[in-house]
Amino acid sequence: MSTRTTVADRPGRTGKGTARRPAAAGLRITYLIGQLDRIVSRRLSEALSQHGLTLPQYTALSVLRARGRASNAQLAERSFITPQSANVVVKTMAANGWVTREHDPANRRIVLLSLTPTGEALLDDCNAQADRIERAMLEETGHEAAQSLQGLLHACVRNLRAT
């Protein structure tokens, strides 16, 4: 008796006359999220490079728009980069005129970063690129499914941050 597995015996594979399960049926959600993250990061990086921007810079600019002003430490934490990387990102953004730096009036040792009009315009252009990528990603889903996915992902983030 052979213990060899045939194509028809493996999950997601079919032999002659058997129904095929969807390819993603046996994949873990965490794996799919990781795969999606890599694809989206690659696509965004390619689109952003046309504007002379990196993904960490785009994230930092987005964080600054959402918060108004932020310190290097806050920017690093919310941009998913180390404080050392944030220093490099901020220096480049300041040199390109995308952000300004000013001392926090409450604590002169803290430098607060803000978007400049040039940074705002650049972010608008890059957001248009991100919108195109999101539309392509959600092409076969309806509006309600996309909103549901957004809510579910937001809940996943909240749940894992709480633990």
Rank of each mutant, 00 (worst) to 15 (best):
S2A: 08
S2H: 04
T3Y: 11
R4P: 01
T5E: 14
V7K: 14
V7C: 07
D9H: 13
R10F: 12
R13F: 08
R13N: 12
K16F: 10
K16W: 08
A24E: 15
A25K: 14
A25R: 15
G26K: 07
L27Q: 14
R28Y: 03
R28K: 13
I29T: 11
I29P: 02
T30R: 04
Y31R: 14
L32M: 15
G34I: 08
D37S: 13
D37M: 12
R38A: 08
S41K: 08
S41D: 10
L44A: 01
E46T: 04
E46W: 05
A47H: 02
L48H: 02
L48N: 05
L48F: 06
S49C: 01
Q50V: 02
Q50A: 08
Q50L: 12
H51C: 00
H51R: 06
G52D: 05
G52W: 02
T54W: 03
Q57F: 04
Y58M: 08
A60T: 15
L61Q: 11
S62G: 15
S62F: 07
V63H: 13
V63D: 12
A66C: 06
R69T: 13
R69P: 02
A73I: 06
L75A: 11
A76N: 07
R78G: 01
R78I: 00
F80P: 00
F80D: 12
F80K: 13
Q84D: 01
S85E: 03
S85R: 08
V90G: 02
T92S: 11
T92Q: 13
M93P: 04
M93F: 05
M93E: 07
A94W: 10
N96M: 14
N96T: 13
G97L: 15
G97C: 15
R101C: 14
E102C: 14
H103R: 15
D104A: 11
P105W: 09
A106K: 13
N107M: 04
N107A: 11
R108T: 08
R108C: 00
R109F: 04
I110W: 01
V111C: 02
V111S: 11
L112T: 03
T116A: 09
T116N: 12
T116V: 11
A121H: 13
D124G: 02
C126W: 00
C126D: 03
C126P: 03
N127K: 08
Q129D: 07
Q129K: 03
R132G: 09
E134K: 10
A136M: 11
L138P: 02
E139V: 09
E140G: 03
H143A: 00
E144N: 10
E144F: 10
A146L: 03
L149W: 09
Q150H: 10
Q150G: 01
G151T: 05
G151I: 01
L153I: 06
L153D: 00
H154G: 03
A155H: 06
V157K: 07
V157Q: 07
R158N: 00
N159W: 09
L160D: 02
A162S: 07
A162K: 05
A162F: 00
